[in-house]
Design a binder for these strands. Structure first.
Length: 436
RNA sequence: GGAGGGAUGGCCGAGCGGCCGAAGGCGGCAGUCUUGAAAACUGCAGUCCGGAGACGGACCGGGGGUUCGAAUCCCCCUCCCUCCUCCA
């Protein structure tokens, strides 16, 4: 949620920032007008209430001295004012609700350092990495690597898409045998890395959160109310299936006032992720490129504003470190203002090269939210000099597995059709060095 | 699913319808003492909104109601605890 105070003191700045996302100035104007109306109405209500309070005290005093006549006269006066205050309050509540609903569907302002641009085509490629150290060249991949992963998976019995569809419908992958083992190994490997390897700072605490959450939990991160169509909802119990572990992890600190000594709070979780993928019907339906349920390891931090950039850099470095150990070529994208997610102010995407599909696949998104989510979630921390501040949040995948597996099955496919398991991963898959 | 008990400040906990934004404790901050620390003692301090400020308002799980006036009385909801039931 945007800070209404900034909206008040710097409406033009907010307008200019949101324009970079394609938000019209008239929308910001509507917010500002509503805020003015709320404050005016609240002031009138507060004045009436103040009078009621004073009169009520006088009633008490009059009763004590036995001055019944005065008490009754003041009571009548107070009752009238009380009615006025009640009406005024109803007006304030309605206006506040309207403002809140509008604020909840207004996205975050982009960071000044985020590149300009309207969509994916304008994202900036920051760097590329290849396992050989030679600059990336699509043509350098051998013929045996140019087989799409769904064929490789079928060849080795790693995936059973038909039966997955039988159980749950299309885009619900069913992993089998060494495929399931590989997936489990990847999760354990990443979790162990993040929670024990403190080379670059304090370790991340492993969390196993619930995967069904309340509406308030989904609102805190910005997934509701705007993106309801993308979420699975269990109506009977009014619970939502999480689209990412970011959702439960962020709400760990929801409505809490944190001691600055506990910051940054660094959390790490493996969870399944559920996405309806509404509006992407027919796209990327083959193989592992897009599915309704997938596994991901997520890193998430709650911190003071000034700690956020370094944490974002650490998460990015951790995600990159995993890809390097897997020997997969990747590139880092600095998302332009127009392609930024709703709640994010700055995002770096990691994409691996998939030689069998012939395209870059997004496997991680590392975002910084400023205090946008913190304000929605009611997460604050004390300030050293006294007072409080809304906490900042940062998170990123490290990593989302299906597309990593897709790239791995293709890039590491050998001439004989077998797939080489990258050495760093082998201890986590029972020492297995190849598939097939 | 059935029965009962509970929810108060950063945390724990007391609280007759007006003198309660709320005792007390812990924790926090500042000071005295100390080479330093601890202990002890003294003092300060809730959160949020509006306002340049003076000041005003809100907040005792959430929402309604009664009343001139509600942390306190009534109703509904949520969550937690105990017992029974069921169960991986």
């Amino acid at each position: 949620m945007l800070d209404v105070r900034r909206l008040r003191h710097d409406p033009d700045g907010v307008s200019a920032d949101l324009a970079r996302r394609g938000i019209a100035a008239s929308e910001v104007k509507a917010l500002v007008d509503l805020d003015v109306a709320v404050r005016g109405a609240a002031q009138r209500r507060d004045e009436a209430r103040a009078k009621v309070k004073r009169l009520s005290k006088a009633v008490g005093a009059a009763r004590k001295t036995g001055d019944t006549a005065t008490a009754e006269r003041l009571q009548a006066e107070s009752r009238l004012l009380g009615e006025q205050a009640g009406e005024a309050d109803a007006g304030v509540a309605a206006l506040e609700e309207e403002l809140c609903q509008l604020l909840l569907v207004t996205p975050n302002t982009p960071d000044p350092d985020a590149p300009d641009g309207a969509g994916p085509q304008d994202n900036r490629v920051m760097r590329m990495w290849t396992p050989t150290g030679v600059p990336f060249n699509e043509a350098a991949y051998a013929e045996c690597q140019r087989v799409p992963h769904w064929e490789v998976a079928a060849q080795h019995g790693l995936l059973d898409a038909e039966r997955g569809a039988k159980l749950s419908g299309s885009m619900f992958p069913l992993w089998r045998g060494k495929g399931a083992r590989l997936l489990r190994g990847l999760t354990s490997w990443a979790l162990d890395r993040h929670t024990t390897d403190a080379k670059d700072g304090a370790v991340w605490e492993e969390v196993r959160p619930p995967t069904l959450v309340k509406t308030a939990t989904m609102v805190a991160t910005g997934h509701l109310p705007k993106f309801e169509e993308d979420m699975y909802h269990l109506e009977r119990d009014d619970l939502w299936a999480i689209p990412t572990a970011e959702v439960p992890l962020t709400s760990l600190a929801r409505d809490e006032l944190l001691d600055p000594a506990t910051l940054p709070l660094k959390l790490c979780a493996y969870t399944p992720c559920f996405r309806r993928e509404a509006g992407s019907a027919g796209r990327d339906t083959r193989g592992l490129l897009r599915s309704h349920e997938f596994d991901k390891v997520e890193l998430m931090a709650v911190c003071a504003a000034e700690q956020a950039p370094a944490l974002q850099a650490e998460i990015l470095a951790r995600a990159e470190g995993l890809l390097r150990d897997l020997g997969l070529a990747y590139r880092v994208l600095d998302l332009c203002a127009g392609d930024l997610g709703f709640s994010s102010m700055r995002t770096f995407d990691l994409e691996v090269w998939s030689p069998g599909v012939g395209s870059w696949l997004e496997v991680s998104s590392v975002s910084r939210y400023g205090d946008y989510q913190g304000r929605r979630a009611g997460i604050r921390h004390r300030l050293d000099g006294g007072g409080t501040a809304v906490a900042s949040t940062v998170n990123g995948s490290a990593l989302a597995w299906p597309r990593v597996v897709a790239a791995l099955l293709e890039a590491h496919r050998q001439e004989d059709g077998s797939v080489r398991i990258p050495p760093p991963l082998r201890p986590w898959v029972g020492g297995l060095s190849r598939l097939g």
